[in-house]
């Protein structure tokens, strides 16, 4: 089976969808001839043609607006916002238009667009190339938000997102584009080679939106994570030496509430890990849901391990980043409660 990193898996998904469906097209800043600043669309214009994968003006609101209009016509546009930090000029289009079009028109119009955008830190990107804005999208009714943590899921989720008839935002953890990252920034870089989830089948397959994956089974505590933090969680769990169950949510909206509640009811403890700032973060919603549905099973307070409530600081990137040490501390607190 072919071994791919996440960039190659995403590229492969786009390549195969372009080949299979003439209504799929790709556009965004620098995605055409050049192939995107992270190379996700590399070679697609040359292979599929100028109108299938092309560059846009630097106007994120215009990119999303154009995609919505194309979606209303019947196409399935896949757009790239170069960094999730730059998606905010398109916020009105996503919130007021893409997310609401089906509802407000009573199903006459809808916007089956897919927005791909690299997010997250750990690349010395400073505050404008490191943010994790998933919570602000998850809050918007009518938008779906997914976050892959490995090449296999990246391809399958992207194909499912493109085929979905609702607007989907796919946040791509850019820190793990080229290799899994366990949060130990001082250790040598790893590649995806040898990782089981780097084996990516050719041909179209789907990872359904709304299904979490159990990455590690355990009985003592449930850890909820997504994106880069799945790998950080694995190392943190190992270092804490606890029998933790790790859920990779993969999809925040729709959320696999059954997998979450089943796991926490089994373990009786829950630690939530995300890179975004804690206050108002998606962990708050997860914590509330677990409390509402698993209160009688809980043996310890729910813990949130997250980025600090500061902008992402360039010099203090690894102080901000919620690495394994912070997770270990949280795991020990819930186990010793």
């Amino acid at each position: 089976m072919p071994v791919m990193n996440m960039v190659q898996a995403l590229n492969n998904a786009l390549d195969e969808k372009l080949g299979a469906d003439p209504d799929v097209l790709i556009f965004g800043e620098d995605v055409g001839y050049f192939g995107g600043v992270f190379r996700v669309t590399d070679g697609l214009q040359a292979k599929h043609g100028l109108t299938r994968c092309f560059d846009t003006p630097i106007a994120e609101g215009g990119i999303i607006a154009t995609a919505i209009g194309m979606g209303a016509y019947g196409l399935r546009p896949v757009v790239e916002i170069q960094f999730a930090d730059y998606i905010l000029p398109a916020f009105d289009q996503l919130v007021s238009e893409a997310a609401r079009l089906r509802y407000r028109s009573n199903g006459e119009f809808w916007a089956p667009l897919t927005v791909r955008t690299p997010y997250g830190g750990g690349i010395f990107g400073g505050q404008t190339h490191s943010q994790s804005p998933e919570a602000i999208f998850a809050h918007v009714v009518g938008l779906k938000t997914v976050v892959p943590s490995n090449p296999y899921d990246a391809k399958g989720l992207l194909i499912a997102a493109i085929e979905d008839d609702d607007p989907v935002i796919m946040l791509e953890p850019k820190r793990i584009y080229n290799g899994p990252f366990d949060g130990h920034h001082d250790r040598p870089l790893k590649t995806w080679a040898g990782h089981p989830k780097a084996e990516v089948p050719t041909g179209l397959y789907r990872v359904p939106l709304g299904k979490a994956a159990v990455v590690r089974e355990g009985r003592a505590v449930t850890v909820l994570a997504y994106g880069t933090m799945v790998h950080v969680a694995l190392s943190g769990i190992d270092e804490a030496g606890v029998d933790a169950e790790l859920l990779d949510l993969r999809s925040l909206v729709p959320l696999d509430i059954e997998a979450i509640t089943a796991s926490v009811r089994k373990t009786g403890r829950c630690v939530i890990l995300h890179e975004a700032s804690r206050f108002g973060g998606f962990g708050g919603e997860l914590s509330a849901l677990v409390q509402e549905r698993c209160f009688d099973h809980l043996k310890a307070p729910i813990e949130r391990v997250a980025g600090w409530d500061t902008p992402y600081p360039h010099a203090f990137e690894w102080d901000y980043f919620p690495g394994p040490a912070r997770l270990v501390a949280a795991l020990r607190r819930v186990m010793e409660y």
Partner: peptide, 19 residues
């Protein structure tokens, strides 16, 4: 479909026409 936001469908028309 009309929304109460001003001008946010101007770009949809362009996208529809491009499609």
């Amino acid at each position: 479909s009309i929304s109460g936001n001003l001008g946010s469908r101007f770009g949809h028309a362009v996208g529809w026409a491009m499609a």
